[in-house]
Design a protein around this nucleic acid. Structure first.
Lengths: 222, 222, 222, 222
DNA sequence: GATGAATGAGAATTCATTCAT
DNA sequence: AATGAATGAATTCTCATTCAT
């Protein structure tokens, strides 16, 4: 199942002008640098060198603009994860690959992801719901891989696949709050360590009680 | 008979308690539910059944109100962690206890923590800086415990203590985005699993390359 | 797979009829329901399933569209009134027929008439002036019939023909503010009563002072 | 039953400053001269020499401002009508007095009434509903007087009291569309004629069929 | 300790209209 | 005869904060 097209209503045709592209680029940059709420529509159009009317021609609202940016990212990330999950190789290998891919994608789009993490809660309406559903699908894809690992006996079963998935994705989704490019570790190194931590954490525990948890269905809210 | 003298659009009073306490309670609730930026001072005073003047009497600004809420929490959390860290017992035990305490405290104050996580980036000024420094101290306290574990050989050394700390705290700090009280697991169960995952993840990996990483100093940004 | 190319916010097409007719129909309905000012050109074209370009191809402006709708109606109504006024029969009979015709025509076109009554004051320019002159001619036609009745002694002369005319046309033009199809009376019944009231009101009063008023020339403003 | 106070929420106390008064005066004048929709909030505050914030402190919205102006008028008019209706004297006399009073009040407030007549349809929400209910009460008061006249045998019964009431009030409410101060008749003269026409129209018709119409309950919409 | 009217700058959004295609 | 992206100016409304009382 491919991601639903991100557009609101209407017809298909590649924009002749570059207005839409400029708007997205400017908004991405500004949202990342100053935050969604602290960026005014006026600033976006000024940076994109278009008029307000043009922005509202392409996006129904400021929040739809934010949502659009995130949905494009999410669609791409989902496609990649699906490819890995459906690929060949032992599940342990695919799990490691999936984790590494999340790390890489996160690194490549910290800005956009940061903005969404901070401001998603301000968005409501149809678009937001659709986005949350898509995000939910992404999560489920990852969780299914963990479940497969549990079935294969390579992933501990005393922690639910859902908790494992959320933990890993949360840790990743929060790097922006602490990672500093000027720190002693590069993002690549941090990424390796995160993958190692994740993979290591999956190993079944030493002999001790390990009740198989219910395969729960906690829903992501954002 | 002419219409009664007309009045401005405004608040509505209710039997009052302690003004300051009411303000904090109302603000906490509203910030958590709608977000800091989406909550107006007007709404806070209406919910707290006080006037704007009263709010500005107790808090210098809206952002100081947010900061105050978080600082109180942070102080409490820091004190508890310090007690655990400085307590008796083997480091492995203290690590587990610290993790469990973070989980418990997080559960008890999701709202306040969520708000800060989402909106800290909007705040600046003295108060905010001080708060960030305090938050940094909290993080360092936890990391030092991890370092102690690494020295004692009970914690893997191929992942930096900083990364371990951030990972755990991030996973915890994000529970609000996915935990559902109606889901199959109670928060207590999820908490247990998170601690297990954390503790399990700390174990040194099977024989493989494990270069001791530099004890980096990545600074938390928020 | 990346998201499909994104598209602007806009209209949606439906199987088309005659563009111009569709536009008029859609505009009439929307203007009547929500008001002229509260209806955007965008909404009109959406409802008519045409594009903005098409609307501006047929009508020079939004106000010209409104004017056009009303002028067509007015022309028809004027032609009918002229026929009745110039017809055979005693003036009393023609007066009653004219009143009945106004009632019938009003009933058939409440929407269009309502819109004009409410929004004519917003319109200016050549077209609007011409329309107001035409409307004036319609009024004069009716008034002349009343004057003829006064000369013939079948209509009271203590009230000026102008006041009589305006009163009757106003009462008619306002039915939309109070008539309810679900009420106890059908529009036909209400119409009969209005004609009866009009005709009855024309009778000369019982013996009392009745100075013949100047045949004034108060001009309709809208 | 007195008219409900026109204010939105909140407490009572006479405004210290003259801001509110100035706003109402400026708005009344501008709405009358240019129309409600054609008058911007900016123009109102400029004319009232207050800031936008002050306007929104006293009125929740532009439409609430319009509604307030009308409601005050309506309350006054209702009070006067009630006094007349409940007064002493034969019903025929009270009917004439009521009509004369409506004419006088209309003359004194053409501007405000014109604005409401033209723009009421743009207003919705709570305030508008309340206003329509109040207007409905006014209408009922008048109609009850007509009904009393019908019972007493001084008013024709072949036309329903509701239709009579609406007709008279509509004719009055529409004077603004045609009366010209520069015309041959003063408003006082026109008023006298309208009252004469109304009173004359009430007389039972010459011998002819006159079925007592159902005492209908058509609801005014505006 | 508190009030609440007033500020003033700026926010998002709407809209009739144009014009290159 | 029609398209639809783009315009640009204006619109209503919000909001944290102040200050005379």
């Amino acid at each position: 199942m491919t991601a639903a097209p991100t557009e609101p209503i209407s017809r298909r045709r590649a924009p002749r002008g570059s207005a839409r592209r400029n708007i997205v680029a400017a908004a991405t940059e500004l949202f990342a640098r100053r935050g969604y709420e602290a960026t005014s529509v006026q600033e976006i159009v000024a940076a994109a060198a278009v008029t307000k009317g043009a922005l509202y021609h392409w996006f129904g609202s400021k929040s739809e603009l934010l949502t659009s940016i995130y949905r494009e990212l999410l669609a791409e990330q989902t496609a990649r994860l699906r490819e890995i999950a459906d690929g060949p190789g032992p599940v342990a290998e695919r799990l490691r690959a999936a984790a590494a891919d999340v790390v890489a994608h996160t690194a490549a789009h910290v800005d956009e992801l940061t903005v969404w993490a901070r401001s998603a809660h301000l968005i409501d309406g149809e678009h937001a719901d659709a986005t949350r559903r898509e995000r939910r699908r992404y999560h489920d894809l990852f969780r299914d891989l963990v479940l497969e690992g549990q079935s294969a006996g390579v992933v501990r079963t005393d922690v639910s696949a859902t908790v494992i998935t959320h933990t890993f994705l949360s840790a990743l989704g929060n790097t922006h709050t602490w990672f500093h490019p000027d720190g002693p570790l590069t993002f690549t190194e941090v990424g390796h360590q995160l993958v190692a931590l994740f993979v290591g954490g999956l190993r079944p525990p030493e002999p001790s009680a390990s009740p198989t948890p219910a395969d729960d269905r906690s829903e992501p809210r954002a």
